[in-house]
Design a protein around this nucleic acid. Structure first.
Lengths: 187, 187
DNA sequence: GTCTATAATTTGATAGAC
DNA sequence: GTCTATCAAATTATAGAC
């Protein structure tokens, strides 16, 4: 793993644990065995580090999701996979969604970081919306609203599970979610 | 307003904007015209300040909610008021829920603060659960799960609205929520 | 090209002034 | 009782070593 990716990895862990102000050059440097000032060679400013971190997180997230159309062709429900990816963040990483936590802090973030957070949600809304359109073409008019509802409950469920230190809360919150039917048809 | 409450007010604004690490003694002090060290007279440590802030926020939130039984007696839907209180946080304050943001950072917070965040969500789940029990006694078995779902979507909707800097997202996410019927009956 | 010595600023806290 | 001078540690950044 390149030095740059080592830095991003440590930064991701720390930001997903406590937000933008929970990461510092020194802690990153200590963890990978360089001096804190060395981080500045790889990322000119902290703002640049944060922005590149969020951008890469978004790309990696979308890559893990894949293409809704492909999934449907192979008999998989893309919305179910979307939910599962959020669950993975909680179960495997034991951490928040990077862009969820940063999104909540948006008003105090540097411009470049805020821009990348927005990009994450725009692309996520579009991905889920497209999935709903493919799953239920007759209800295409509601696809975007349903996408926003789904992402909201997933981000909120992550947040509550961390707050209560109880993974089961996530499963309760995401029980019988809107997988296929029109908004609120599950249950 | 007492000095102590002045400090809490500034701290609340800053924490709700950027989390626990977004507040500092100096900024608090500057804003109210004292020296940063003076804050330590009113709150021994930052942990104590954070804990008292979260405790007071929780009490104030519950007080604004009132008693579900009273509301039902006077013909008001308590769940509708609950949703409205979250909306107020966004529209009037233009800020996150204090305990939502801190909850997402839970793993890096001092013990006393984490304890208060947990208390917020425990009391909120209980309040909403009780409301559902009163509204739909026949579905009492699902009341707690429905409460968790509702709080999740509200916290997530706040988060997304801040991330996208778009209040309308909150209204879309909370359109046709589970006000009375059993889980997922809305739509 | 990669990294570090060093610095300016900020942070949380103590010891003590009035 | 209320507040401040002062401090030790941490944070981001620069200038320059190798």
């Amino acid at each position: 793993m390149s030095r740059k990716n080592e830095i991003l990895k440590v930064a991701e862990s720390r930001v997903r644990t406590g937000g933008y102000n929970n990461v510092s050059h020194r802690e990153i440097a200590n963890e990978i065995g360089i001096k804190s000032a060395s981080v500045h060679y790889h990322f000119k400013t902290k703002e640049d580090l944060g922005a590149e971190l969020a951008h890469q997180y978004t790309d990696s997230f979308l890559h893990a999701l894949g293409e809704p159309a492909d999934m449907i062709n192979s008999g998989e429900n893309p919305v179910a996979r979307y939910i599962e990816l959020f669950r993975t963040a909680l179960i495997r990483d034991k951490k928040m969604c990077l862009c969820g936590l940063l999104g909540a802090e948006s008003d105090c973030l540097p411009d470049k970081v805020r821009f990348e957070i927005k990009r994450f949600f725009e692309l996520n809304i579009e991905w889920v919306k497209q999935s709903y359109v493919l799953l239920t073409p007759d209800d295409a008019a509601h696809a975007k609203t349903r996408a926003i509802k789904l992402i909201s409950v997933l981000e909120g469920a992550l947040m509550m599970s961390k707050a209560m230190d109880d993974i089961e809360l996530f499963d309760l919150a995401t029980l019988d979610l809107d997988l296929v039917g029109s908004a609120g048809s599950a249950g």
